[in-house]
């Protein structure tokens, strides 16, 4: 069993990761970190860079958490990547970060969080960035 966390290098992404680490320590589960990009822009700020990932793995090593960091770039939306990983690694919990969206923005852009909440077959923990 494992805990899946959707990670992006932003405040809400870090908040989700922090919480996921706490959960993983509690339940002694493996932590699967998903940081995906659709790969359709030349630069994707939500795609974590190598230094970021290495400091992240160092931290997890230090805290002694079994972990797996995945950075799929397959043209899929972040929500699909998280859901697919949840299926594959038999997730007991998905942790995601929430950001504020205006209703119009949500209408046009859709919401990854909403899709995960609706389609996941395990509990989903949604975390907000500490203001």
């Amino acid at each position: 069993m494992s805990i899946i966390v959707g990670y992006i290098p932003t405040a809400e992404g870090t908040a989700a990761l922090d919480r996921a680490i706490t959960e993983a320590q509690k339940s002694q589960s493996r932590l699967v970190i998903i940081n995906s990009s659709r790969g359709d822009a030349i630069v994707d700020k939500r795609y974590a860079q190598a230094e970021d990932i290495s400091s992240l793995t160092e931290r997890l090593d230090r805290e002694g958490i079994e972990h797996l960091v995945l950075q799929p770039v397959r043209g899929n939306d972040a929500a699909n990547e998280v859901l697919e990983a949840a299926e594959k690694y038999r997730a007991e919990l998905i942790v995601i970060g929430l950001r504020r969206r205006t209703p119009v923005g949500k209408l046009i852009m859709g919401s990854a969080a909403q899709q995960i909440l609706l389609e996941a077959s395990c509990p989903v923990l949604a975390v907000k960035a500490s203001a």
């Binding site: 990009s37 790969g39 030349i42 630069v43 190598a50 770039v73």
Partner: peptide, 8 residues
């Protein structure tokens, strides 16, 4: 098409 995001 390049699929990997570059580092900026």
């Amino acid at each position: 098409l390049r699929r990997t995001p570059l580092q900026i």
